[in-house]
Amino acid sequence: MTGNIIELTGLTRKYGQFTAVDNLSLTIARGEIFGLLGPNGAGKSTTIMMMLGLTEPDSGTARVCGLDPSADPVGVKKRTGYLPEEVGFYDDMSGLDNLVYTACLNGLSAKEAKAKAEKLLERVGLSREKHKKTGKYSRGMRQRLGLADVLIKDPEVIILDEPTLGIDPAGVREFLDLIVELSREHGITVLFSSHHLHQVQQVCDRVGLFVGGKLLATGDVQSLASQLFGKSPYSVEAGIDIPKQHPGGNTGNDQKRREIMDALLALSGVNDIMEENGKMHLSCERDLTGEIAAAIIGCGARLTSLSKREYGLDDIYYRYFEGGENHE
Protein backbone atom coordinates (compact mmCIF):
# COMPACT_ATOMS: atom_id res chain seq x y z
CA MET A 1 0.00 0.00 0.00
CA THR A 2 1.40 3.35 -0.94
CA GLY A 3 0.07 6.87 -0.72
CA ASN A 4 -0.73 8.90 2.32
CA ILE A 5 -0.46 7.24 5.66
CA ILE A 6 -1.60 10.21 7.72
CA GLU A 7 -4.39 12.46 6.51
CA LEU A 8 -5.70 15.22 8.71
CA THR A 9 -8.49 17.41 7.40
CA GLY A 10 -9.85 20.47 9.17
CA LEU A 11 -8.81 19.17 12.59
CA THR A 12 -9.83 21.55 15.36
CA ARG A 13 -9.55 21.26 19.13
CA LYS A 14 -10.59 23.95 21.57
CA TYR A 15 -10.03 24.28 25.29
CA GLY A 16 -12.66 26.73 26.37
CA GLN A 17 -11.85 29.98 24.62
CA PHE A 18 -8.41 28.84 23.60
CA THR A 19 -8.05 27.10 20.26
CA ALA A 20 -5.17 24.66 20.56
CA VAL A 21 -5.40 23.27 17.05
CA ASP A 22 -7.12 25.36 14.41
CA ASN A 23 -8.44 23.80 11.24
CA LEU A 24 -5.35 21.72 10.60
CA SER A 25 -4.98 19.86 7.32
CA LEU A 26 -1.91 17.79 6.69
CA THR A 27 -0.95 14.72 4.71
CA ILE A 28 2.12 12.61 5.23
CA ALA A 29 3.23 10.03 2.69
CA ARG A 30 4.30 6.52 3.55
CA GLY A 31 7.97 6.19 4.40
CA GLU A 32 8.47 9.90 4.86
CA ILE A 33 10.24 11.55 7.76
CA PHE A 34 8.14 14.57 8.55
CA GLY A 35 9.15 17.29 10.95
CA LEU A 36 6.51 19.18 12.83
CA LEU A 37 8.20 22.35 13.90
CA GLY A 38 6.78 24.90 16.24
CA PRO A 39 7.36 26.71 19.51
CA ASN A 40 6.16 25.34 22.84
CA GLY A 41 2.42 25.44 23.17
CA ALA A 42 1.81 25.51 19.44
CA GLY A 43 -0.53 22.52 19.64
CA LYS A 44 1.88 19.86 18.46
CA SER A 45 1.19 17.48 21.33
CA THR A 46 -2.56 18.00 21.07
CA THR A 47 -2.41 17.10 17.39
CA ILE A 48 -0.50 13.95 18.20
CA MET A 49 -2.99 13.02 20.92
CA MET A 50 -5.79 13.36 18.41
CA MET A 51 -3.95 11.15 15.93
CA LEU A 52 -3.70 8.46 18.58
CA GLY A 53 -7.33 8.77 19.61
CA LEU A 54 -6.37 9.84 23.14
CA THR A 55 -8.13 13.16 22.65
CA GLU A 56 -11.27 13.74 20.62
CA PRO A 57 -11.19 16.49 18.00
CA ASP A 58 -13.97 19.08 18.18
CA SER A 59 -14.32 18.99 14.42
CA GLY A 60 -12.51 17.65 11.40
CA THR A 61 -11.26 14.15 10.78
CA ALA A 62 -8.00 12.32 11.14
CA ARG A 63 -7.05 9.18 9.28
CA VAL A 64 -4.00 7.23 10.35
CA CYS A 65 -3.14 4.11 8.34
CA GLY A 66 -6.58 4.46 6.76
CA LEU A 67 -8.33 4.26 10.14
CA ASP A 68 -10.22 6.85 12.13
CA PRO A 69 -8.53 7.21 15.54
CA SER A 70 -11.70 8.29 17.34
CA ALA A 71 -13.70 5.34 15.99
CA ASP A 72 -11.03 2.66 16.13
CA PRO A 73 -8.32 3.79 18.53
CA VAL A 74 -7.08 0.25 19.13
CA GLY A 75 -6.57 -0.36 15.41
CA VAL A 76 -4.60 2.86 15.09
CA LYS A 77 -2.55 2.19 18.19
CA LYS A 78 -1.69 -1.27 16.90
CA ARG A 79 0.03 0.32 13.89
CA THR A 80 1.40 3.45 15.52
CA GLY A 81 4.24 3.78 17.93
CA TYR A 82 4.31 6.85 20.14
CA LEU A 83 7.31 8.15 22.02
CA PRO A 84 6.36 10.99 24.35
CA GLU A 85 8.59 13.83 25.33
CA GLU A 86 9.46 12.28 28.65
CA VAL A 87 8.88 8.60 28.31
CA GLY A 88 7.91 6.88 31.52
CA PHE A 89 8.93 3.39 32.51
CA TYR A 90 8.22 1.35 35.57
CA ASP A 91 11.28 2.27 37.56
CA ASP A 92 11.34 -0.88 39.64
CA MET A 93 11.40 -3.14 36.59
CA SER A 94 14.40 -3.82 34.36
CA GLY A 95 14.61 -2.42 30.86
CA LEU A 96 14.00 -5.86 29.45
CA ASP A 97 10.92 -6.44 31.60
CA ASN A 98 9.47 -3.09 30.59
CA LEU A 99 9.83 -4.03 26.93
CA VAL A 100 8.41 -7.51 27.47
CA TYR A 101 5.38 -5.96 29.16
CA THR A 102 4.72 -3.69 26.18
CA ALA A 103 5.20 -6.58 23.79
CA CYS A 104 2.70 -8.70 25.70
CA LEU A 105 0.19 -5.85 25.57
CA ASN A 106 0.66 -5.97 21.81
CA GLY A 107 -0.37 -9.60 21.68
CA LEU A 108 2.95 -11.39 21.75
CA SER A 109 3.51 -14.44 23.89
CA ALA A 110 6.01 -14.10 26.71
CA LYS A 111 8.58 -16.14 24.80
CA GLU A 112 8.35 -14.17 21.55
CA ALA A 113 8.30 -10.95 23.52
CA LYS A 114 11.54 -11.78 25.29
CA ALA A 115 13.34 -12.74 22.06
CA LYS A 116 12.18 -9.60 20.32
CA ALA A 117 13.00 -7.33 23.25
CA GLU A 118 16.55 -8.73 23.40
CA LYS A 119 16.98 -8.07 19.71
CA LEU A 120 15.75 -4.50 19.93
CA LEU A 121 17.83 -3.75 23.02
CA GLU A 122 20.84 -4.89 21.04
CA ARG A 123 19.78 -2.64 18.18
CA VAL A 124 19.50 0.50 20.33
CA GLY A 125 22.71 -0.34 22.16
CA LEU A 126 21.31 -1.20 25.56
CA SER A 127 22.00 -4.93 25.68
CA ARG A 128 24.53 -4.50 28.46
CA GLU A 129 22.09 -2.60 30.65
CA LYS A 130 19.05 -4.74 29.96
CA HIS A 131 18.85 -6.20 33.46
CA LYS A 132 19.36 -2.87 35.15
CA LYS A 133 16.29 -1.24 36.67
CA THR A 134 15.04 1.60 34.48
CA GLY A 135 15.06 3.90 37.50
CA LYS A 136 18.85 3.88 37.22
CA TYR A 137 18.90 4.68 33.49
CA SER A 138 20.21 8.00 32.25
CA ARG A 139 18.04 10.31 30.16
CA GLY A 140 19.63 9.19 26.90
CA MET A 141 19.26 5.55 27.79
CA ARG A 142 15.60 6.07 28.64
CA GLN A 143 14.97 7.67 25.27
CA ARG A 144 16.72 4.80 23.50
CA LEU A 145 14.73 2.33 25.52
CA GLY A 146 11.66 4.33 24.51
CA LEU A 147 12.59 3.91 20.88
CA ALA A 148 12.90 0.16 21.36
CA ASP A 149 9.57 0.23 23.16
CA VAL A 150 7.98 1.94 20.17
CA LEU A 151 9.53 -0.45 17.67
CA ILE A 152 8.53 -3.63 19.46
CA LYS A 153 5.09 -3.61 17.89
CA ASP A 154 6.47 -3.34 14.32
CA PRO A 155 4.73 -0.03 13.70
CA GLU A 156 3.94 1.50 10.33
CA VAL A 157 4.18 4.99 11.79
CA ILE A 158 6.19 6.25 14.70
CA ILE A 159 5.37 9.53 16.32
CA LEU A 160 8.14 11.19 18.29
CA ASP A 161 7.14 14.11 20.46
CA GLU A 162 10.22 16.17 21.34
CA PRO A 163 12.27 13.01 21.73
CA THR A 164 15.64 14.70 22.09
CA LEU A 165 14.79 17.00 24.99
CA GLY A 166 17.46 16.85 27.62
CA ILE A 167 19.91 14.58 25.87
CA ASP A 168 23.48 15.78 25.35
CA PRO A 169 24.53 16.78 21.81
CA ALA A 170 26.43 13.56 21.08
CA GLY A 171 23.48 11.55 22.32
CA VAL A 172 21.09 13.56 20.15
CA ARG A 173 23.16 12.92 17.06
CA GLU A 174 23.30 9.20 17.79
CA PHE A 175 19.60 9.11 18.50
CA LEU A 176 18.66 10.93 15.30
CA ASP A 177 20.91 8.74 13.21
CA LEU A 178 19.27 5.71 14.74
CA ILE A 179 15.82 7.01 13.83
CA VAL A 180 16.80 7.68 10.24
CA GLU A 181 18.47 4.29 9.92
CA LEU A 182 15.49 2.46 11.35
CA SER A 183 13.06 4.38 9.22
CA ARG A 184 14.98 3.55 6.04
CA GLU A 185 15.51 -0.08 7.03
CA HIS A 186 11.91 -0.86 7.76
CA GLY A 187 10.15 1.76 5.66
CA ILE A 188 8.60 3.32 8.73
CA THR A 189 6.94 6.69 8.46
CA VAL A 190 8.21 9.06 11.10
CA LEU A 191 6.48 12.11 12.48
CA PHE A 192 9.00 14.11 14.40
CA SER A 193 7.75 16.96 16.51
CA SER A 194 10.28 19.40 17.84
CA HIS A 195 11.25 22.98 18.38
CA HIS A 196 14.89 22.25 17.65
CA LEU A 197 15.47 23.55 14.16
CA HIS A 198 18.78 21.90 13.51
CA GLN A 199 17.63 18.47 14.50
CA VAL A 200 14.63 18.74 12.25
CA GLN A 201 16.74 20.04 9.40
CA GLN A 202 19.16 17.18 9.92
CA VAL A 203 16.72 14.31 9.60
CA CYS A 204 13.47 15.37 8.02
CA ASP A 205 12.43 15.04 4.39
CA ARG A 206 9.68 17.55 4.81
CA VAL A 207 8.84 20.12 7.45
CA GLY A 208 5.61 21.67 8.61
CA LEU A 209 5.71 24.97 10.46
CA PHE A 210 3.13 24.93 13.19
CA VAL A 211 2.34 28.09 15.12
CA GLY A 212 -0.64 28.95 17.29
CA GLY A 213 -2.54 25.86 16.21
CA LYS A 214 -2.17 26.66 12.54
CA LEU A 215 0.03 25.04 9.95
CA LEU A 216 1.73 27.98 8.24
CA ALA A 217 3.75 26.21 5.57
CA THR A 218 4.92 22.78 4.55
CA GLY A 219 7.64 21.56 2.26
CA ASP A 220 11.32 20.72 2.29
CA VAL A 221 13.76 23.27 3.60
CA GLN A 222 14.68 24.59 0.12
CA SER A 223 11.15 25.12 -1.03
CA LEU A 224 10.21 26.74 2.26
CA ALA A 225 13.11 29.12 1.83
CA SER A 226 12.15 30.07 -1.67
CA GLN A 227 8.50 30.49 -0.60
CA LEU A 228 9.56 32.87 2.09
CA PHE A 229 12.50 34.74 0.75
CA GLY A 230 11.10 34.75 -2.75
CA LYS A 231 13.44 36.73 -4.92
CA SER A 232 16.47 36.76 -2.66
CA PRO A 233 17.44 33.26 -1.68
CA TYR A 234 21.13 34.13 -1.22
CA SER A 235 22.68 36.15 1.46
CA VAL A 236 26.22 37.51 1.51
CA GLU A 237 27.90 39.03 4.50
CA ALA A 238 30.86 41.34 3.95
CA GLY A 239 33.19 42.82 6.55
CA ILE A 240 34.68 46.10 5.35
CA ASP A 241 37.50 48.10 6.76
CA ILE A 242 37.96 51.66 5.59
CA PRO A 243 41.56 52.95 5.82
CA LYS A 244 41.97 55.38 8.76
CA GLN A 245 44.24 57.86 6.95
CA HIS A 246 41.45 58.77 4.59
CA PRO A 247 40.98 62.55 4.65
CA GLY A 248 37.86 63.93 6.30
CA GLY A 249 37.91 61.83 9.54
CA ASN A 250 34.65 60.27 10.68
CA THR A 251 32.39 62.10 8.26
CA GLY A 252 34.69 60.98 5.49
CA ASN A 253 34.34 57.45 6.70
CA ASP A 254 30.56 57.66 6.55
CA GLN A 255 30.76 59.16 3.14
CA LYS A 256 32.99 56.35 1.98
CA ARG A 257 30.62 53.83 3.44
CA ARG A 258 27.65 55.31 1.58
CA GLU A 259 29.74 55.29 -1.58
CA ILE A 260 30.42 51.57 -1.20
CA MET A 261 26.76 50.85 -0.52
CA ASP A 262 25.69 52.71 -3.63
CA ALA A 263 28.26 50.83 -5.67
CA LEU A 264 26.96 47.52 -4.31
CA LEU A 265 23.32 48.40 -4.88
CA ALA A 266 24.22 49.28 -8.45
CA LEU A 267 25.16 45.66 -9.06
CA SER A 268 22.35 43.89 -10.86
CA GLY A 269 20.90 41.18 -8.64
CA VAL A 270 21.44 42.86 -5.28
CA ASN A 271 18.06 43.60 -3.74
CA ASP A 272 18.82 44.97 -0.33
CA ILE A 273 21.64 45.95 1.97
CA MET A 274 21.55 46.04 5.72
CA GLU A 275 24.33 47.18 7.95
CA GLU A 276 24.80 45.46 11.25
CA ASN A 277 27.82 45.38 13.61
CA GLY A 278 30.01 46.93 10.98
CA LYS A 279 29.19 44.21 8.49
CA MET A 280 27.03 44.48 5.45
CA HIS A 281 24.32 41.95 4.75
CA LEU A 282 23.32 41.72 1.13
CA SER A 283 20.28 39.90 -0.19
CA CYS A 284 20.90 38.67 -3.69
CA GLU A 285 19.03 36.89 -6.43
CA ARG A 286 22.06 34.98 -7.58
CA ASP A 287 25.41 34.00 -6.19
CA LEU A 288 27.17 37.36 -6.48
CA THR A 289 30.06 36.82 -4.08
CA GLY A 290 32.78 37.53 -6.66
CA GLU A 291 31.16 40.70 -8.00
CA ILE A 292 30.60 42.05 -4.50
CA ALA A 293 34.24 41.53 -3.56
CA ALA A 294 35.39 43.27 -6.71
CA ALA A 295 33.05 46.23 -6.12
CA ILE A 296 34.24 46.78 -2.55
CA ILE A 297 37.89 46.65 -3.45
CA GLY A 298 37.16 48.88 -6.46
CA CYS A 299 35.97 51.59 -4.04
CA GLY A 300 39.31 51.54 -2.26
CA ALA A 301 38.14 49.83 0.94
CA ARG A 302 39.56 46.68 2.46
CA LEU A 303 37.58 43.52 2.50
CA THR A 304 38.13 41.75 5.82
CA SER A 305 35.67 38.93 5.48
CA LEU A 306 33.18 37.61 3.00
CA SER A 307 30.82 34.79 3.59
CA LYS A 308 28.00 33.36 1.60
CA ARG A 309 25.10 31.66 3.24
CA GLU A 310 21.99 29.84 2.16
CA TYR A 311 18.90 30.22 4.24
CA GLY A 312 18.40 27.51 6.80
CA LEU A 313 15.49 26.60 8.95
CA ASP A 314 16.62 29.19 11.47
CA ASP A 315 15.96 32.03 9.11
CA ILE A 316 12.71 30.52 7.95
CA TYR A 317 11.57 30.06 11.51
CA TYR A 318 12.45 33.54 12.66
CA ARG A 319 11.03 35.12 9.56
CA TYR A 320 7.69 33.56 10.46
CA PHE A 321 7.81 34.86 13.96
CA GLU A 322 8.81 38.37 13.01
CA GLY A 323 5.11 39.15 13.11
CA GLY A 324 5.44 38.51 16.84
CA GLU A 325 2.36 36.31 17.22
CA ASN A 326 2.56 33.41 19.62
CA HIS A 327 6.17 33.94 20.17
CA GLU A 328 7.67 32.41 23.25
Binding site: K77, Y82, G88, F89, L105, D149
Partner: peptide
Protein backbone atom coordinates in the same frame (compact mmCIF):
# COMPACT_ATOMS: atom_id res chain seq x y z
CA UNK B 1 1.22 7.38 40.09
CA UNK B 2 1.01 6.03 36.54
CA UNK B 3 0.36 9.54 35.39
CA UNK B 4 3.21 11.02 37.39
CA UNK B 5 5.67 8.42 36.17
CA UNK B 6 4.63 9.12 32.59
CA UNK B 7 3.71 5.50 32.06
CA UNK B 8 0.02 6.21 31.56
CA UNK B 9 0.42 7.80 28.14
CA UNK B 10 2.86 5.11 27.11
CA UNK B 11 0.57 2.25 28.13
CA UNK B 12 -2.46 3.95 26.62
CA UNK B 13 -0.67 4.27 23.29
CA UNK B 14 -0.55 0.49 23.18
CA UNK B 15 -3.43 -1.25 21.42
CA UNK B 16 -5.67 -1.61 24.45
CA UNK B 17 -8.94 -0.02 25.47
Amino acid sequence: SEHNRGTLSRILSQPIH
